[in-house]
Design a protein around this nucleic acid. Structure first.
Lengths: 147, 147
DNA sequence: CACATAATCTTGAATTATTCAAGACAATTG
DNA sequence: CAATTGTCTTGAATAATTCAAGATTATGTG
């Protein structure tokens, strides 16, 4: 579960280049950060990136996250009440559980396997391209806290 | 679809009181606004409310929306890239389609009837109380616009 | 119905996440 | 290695939302 991917720099470079983007230190660092810590928000990614590249600005991280997201390398999730989170786009079909209290995010596989809820609708008039399922609840740690 | 509800002031008052809250002009006005325009954000609700109660502040609207939401009278939805939207809690089980371009929101019934995707999971360790499905796509109007 | 009390609203300001803009700099192409 | 275009840095702006203090009001009680 949440198996940590450990890509080589070359693999990361290739995926960035393959998406038609220039390969930069910042982009490599952001991908690396998200490999070790999925569902991180911009600020958390920023903190990780700074360890390797102290000169990096928060705005650069925002730019990289936006670029990689629209290139399809990252997936952005934005649950209510918390800042946007990012994860590597693995291609598998999973959803998220978000803690109502501390905003912790965890992956969950689709309960029903083939994701029937995600079947595109044709009667709405919308041209649907994505579906997203978010579960809300209390994470194990917050269940132990009273009130 | 999206059948407009037209409650009497008495009905609205009763539901507020029934939720253990004081009945105020602002709260009645917010509920009334959301009856005629579902999925409105705080600012839109504010504009509607001002028509009846010119002295109302935006902060009051935020307060009312928060109070009514935690009392269970409203449901708050917060799709990525757009501000939070509110709708009357009707008790039925429906989801939302959000336009990727203009952020329009529309209700959709659960594709599979009994909402299997919403079955609480027990293996995640989370105490799940809510599930939310959001579809993303282009609304009919935006499909006509060229990129 | 007047009062007390606690909830609610108003006004004004602060926060947080995120985006914009202009110029400096760096990655790819040839 | 020079040209080009994309990307990053710095500095500031925006938008949504929240906080705080005092004024006001809804509601239960006498």
């Amino acid at each position: 579960m949440g198996a940590m991917i450990t890509s080589t720099p070359k693999m990361l470079s290739d995926s960035i280049r393959g998406a038609g983007l220039k390969v930069t230190e910042s982009r490599l660092a952001v991908l690396k950060a998200l490999e070790s810590q999925s569902h991180a928000d911009a600020n958390t990614v920023f903190d990780s990136v700074k360890l390797d590249l102290p000169g990096t600005s928060l705005q650069a991280v925002y730019g990289v996250l936006t670029a990689l997201t629209s290139a399809g390398l990252l997936r952005k999730i934005a649950p209510a009440r918390s800042s946007a989170r990012y994860e590597l786009r693995t291609g598998d079909n999973h959803h998220h559980v978000v803690c109502t209290r501390c905003s912790a995010v965890q992956d969950v596989d689709c309960v029903v396997g083939e994701a029937p809820c995600l079947t595109p609708l044709h009667d709405s008039g919308f041209a649907i391209h994505t579906a997203e399922v978010t579960f809300w609840g209390l994470c194990p740690a917050c269940q132990l806290t009273n009130s």
